[in-house]
Design a protein around this nucleic acid. Sequence first.
RNA 1: GCGCCCGUAGCUCAGCAGGAUAGAGCAACGGUUUCCUAAACCGUAGGUCAGACGUUCGAAUCGUCUCGGGCGCACCA
Length: 565
Amino acid sequence: MIDQFKKTIVCLLADKTYLTEDEIDKCIEIPPDPKMGDYAFPCFSLSKTLKNSPNKIASELADRLKPTSPVSEIKAIGPYLNFFLDKTTFSEVVLKKISNEGNLYGSDTIGEGKTVVIDYSSPNIAKHLAVHHLRSALIGNALYNIYRNLGYKCVGINHLGDWGTQFGQLIVAYKKWGEKNLEDYTITDLNKLYVRFHQEAEKDIYLEDEAREWFKKLERGDTEAIELWKRFKDISLLEFQRVYKMLGIHFDAVVGESFYNTMVEDTVSRIREKGLACISDQALIIDLERYNMPPCLLRKKDDTTLYATRDIAAAEYRKSAYNFDKMIYVVGSEQKLHFKQVFKVLELMEYDWAGQCVHVDFGLMKFKDGKMSTRKGVVILLEDLLIEAVERIKKIIEEKNPSLKDKELVARDVGIGAVVFADLSTKRNKDVIFDWDTVLNFEGETGPYVQYTHARLCSILRKYGKDVMADIDYTLLNEDDTINLVKNLWQYPFVLLKSAQYYEPSLMSNYLIDVCANVNKFYNSHRVLSENDDLTKARILLVDAARQIIKNGLRILGMHAPAEM
RNA sequence: GCGCCCGUAGCUCAGCAGGAUAGAGCAACGGUUUCCUAAACCGUAGGUCAGACGUUCGAAUCGUCUCGGGCGCACCA
């Protein structure tokens, strides 16, 4: 979607300057203070070519440009040429558009006919989903929603870590210390085995060799190994599913690394045929020294494959299965080098789609006193966190709104929403320190704040009880804070586009905070339902539009927007 | 050692394809409820944008270096 107001200004300027529309478009800014205007054109760059001071150029342009609707005034303020929109026309265009498009407002068609594959969550099996698994799942899920709203066909893939030496480790641990019948095992039991393996392996150096031996058996299809592995996987999936459901995370395909086991052979052959591979220290590698990278390992000296090998095979498979236009890997930044290597190998294999692969990385989640580690068993389980959040919300509901219906449901929406929003509200490349108080804070810039604002707006509309009409007297929406809110709502589609462009859901969560701050300011200083019918109608339309934007935005982030809370 | 990321208020963060006086929230203090949900709103206080140099009409934003923190660098994923 293009900003039609900005477009008008660009056209006006293109007519009176030497600059192209594109060049002007890039320069146009929004002034820091709305009193200065709605859009601004800085004249610094023109001052060089015109050999005149920017202030003078601005005032000369102000004289030469005639404001035409929707522009009501063009004024030079210092070196800036500032444009004022006619408030009435502006509000009418914006509010009518939102009213007409409703749930679809902000959607775009730029992605029509294109497919984007998104790989997210992708936890290792036999371990609990813990808080540090949140980021990949939530960022990936949000990107899925963002791209889908822009018209792309999305394929969400949960690339389970269900293959690798660690399953050799688990088999060894189970055979040595497994007490119960495997039927009765839970993920907690598996986790204990895993932790125990690493404890014992520090004392017994042969344990790792034994584990590698079992993984080799697994890769060759040994019945006992497969049997155990399958059970481990079933136990894990059952628990994962429960947490994904709570979080509202959706996948189109849950396909683990093991799935590519049969394809790895062919992948390796193709790489060898291209003459890319060589043997080094008995391992099969691709030397990447020319590209300033350490080698990419395809096969260990015991002949088993590594995750890089499987990632290459998976990429090939996904290209043939989905013919994507873009493939996004939502994986922590500690794997940056890995993906750089994998993408380079795809390029060396002469796949023209290698450039369509993107690693959307994100910072580590740590505790105050260090990194979370499943190996040491130092984690907070995701499910525990979610349950705790819901419990705390329940208490607050009892306190503030005891007569609320569907308390359980609302508590879930708000409690889980708080966790989701907290995670999505910092830029993804920053490391985050997990802190219960921060995640479970429900005041200020939080998920509950956004949901609460939405609920208040719904409440007004409920009390109003009539249909919302778009044919209102737009001159009534002329106060500063009202117009600011309308301007803010107008930005939604551009925020959505930018979130996609930068793979950055936090742009959306920060935008929603901004909208809600404006809504609450408006709410506190203007009475919506009043004796004045025309004014009521006008404000109701604005309330409904704001409600719609918040709802659309929350949906993008993967959150619910309860009508009451 | 080499490479990548981060460093903005006491804390958590926004602002970073250079632009007009560096913004929020939390915590602190003070105020707002006969009125649409006070999970809200308003106000006070809080800053050498890690530091230095450079590019520029202009730098929190770009470049170089230093310091501090994180991550990665061949048989784990």
